[in-house]
């Protein structure tokens, strides 16, 4: 008995050490981005890498912000003040992610409720279609989607990235899981009390699936922020770029200026990581709920 418990203890300590080493390895790329963003060219191109910058510099960011400028926003004829291009990219990315988030949450909450609680004709068929579509890689439908977007005159606009994200059925699937937890008696009672469909949805269903909406919101926001492939295919002009796409293009243009690239990468990654850390509780919940009955 003693031997086994000693062994268990040794195993526990050993696994904790391995875990800590792994944790260091997993955080290292981010550390390398952030420190790299503040390193001088000399540090960056040294054949002996400097784990800590010998000298902190803002010159990479200065370079990043002095690149091609663009108006802060363009809504119809309304044109914002001129700002550095990267700021515009950030504004675009935030706009895109927030729009995708709002539209996804709204449509998915309604659809998920209907799929979970309404018994209508075609429900099973629709649900199997949703599950099948979820297993399909998004990229497969890229070309038809591209032609469709140009036919709708949406190509090279942020909407061309937002709409397919909203159409992706994961949100509906997730919200159905949450809506299934609503007791049927409560809905029945509301109906007996004479509450209309919209009132039932707004006052009873929505508050009950709120954790699900929170999870879906943060999930959609992060995914949309990082959905590089869709952005690459759908956006063409520099002023419409997202931050990911902007950095990727910068890499192709200036493949040697690592300091500049790191400052861009830091600008793309740090905001989304902060959002993630603030809302990670909901995020974890969302991922888990999506898997139940998956």
């Amino acid at each position: 008995m003693k031997i086994t418990s000693n062994r268990t203890k040794a195993y526990r300590i050993l696994s904790l050490i391995v875990l800590i080493l792994l944790a260091v390895a997993f955080t290292f790329p981010l550390y390398w981005i952030v420190t790299g963003a503040f390193k001088t060219g000399q540090d960056i191109y040294a054949t002996t890498p400097h784990l800590w910058p010998t000298e902190w510099t803002m010159s990479n960011f200065d370079k990043l912000f002095s690149r091609r400028s663009a108006p802060l926003f363009e809504i119809g004829t309304l044109v914002g003040p001129t700002v550095p291009g990267v700021i515009r990219w950030l504004v675009n990315t935030v706009f895109m992610s927030v729009m995708a988030m709002i539209l996804t949450c709204l449509t998915a909450a309604m659809a998920g409720y209907a799929l979970a609680k309404k018994r209508f004709i075609g429900r099973t068929l629709l649900f199997s279609l949703i599950v099948c579509a979820m297993a399909l890689p998004k990229q497969v439908i890229l070309i038809p989607l591209l032609r469709e977007m140009s036919a709708l005159h949406l190509w090279d606009s942020l909407w061309a990235v937002i709409f397919p994200t909203v159409g992706w059925p994961f949100g509906v699937f997730l919200m159905k899981q949450f809506a299934e937890g609503i007791p049927g008696e409560i809905l029945e009672a509301a109906r007996v009390d004479g509450a209309g469909e919209i009132r039932t949805f707004a006052t009873i269903v929505l508050p009950m699936v709120k954790p699900g909406v929170g999870a879906l919101a943060i999930f959609t926001f992060i995914n949309s922020w990082n959905d590089y492939f869709m952005q690459l295919v759908m956006l063409a002009s520099n002023a419409n770029y997202t931050i990911s796409l902007g950095i990727a293009t910068m890499q192709a243009e200036t493949s040697v200026d690592l300091g500049l690239l790191m400052s861009g990468a830091a600008l793309a990654a740090v905001p989304i990581i902060i959002v993630f850390l603030i809302f990670q509780k909901y995020f974890t919940q969302g991922i888990t709920m999506g898997a139940v009955k998956g």
Binding site: M110, A114, L115, A133, V140, E148, G167, W168
Partner: peptide, 26 residues
């Protein structure tokens, strides 16, 4: 059925328009 589809409608517009139609076109 009617109320079910009304709740589904906004989502279906995006799902059919930007996933299902491209899928079959593909």
């Amino acid at each position: 059925t009617i109320s079910g589809y009304l709740f589904l409608l906004p989502s279906l517009i995006f799902f059919v328009g930007f996933v299902i139609i491209p899928m079959f076109t593909c």
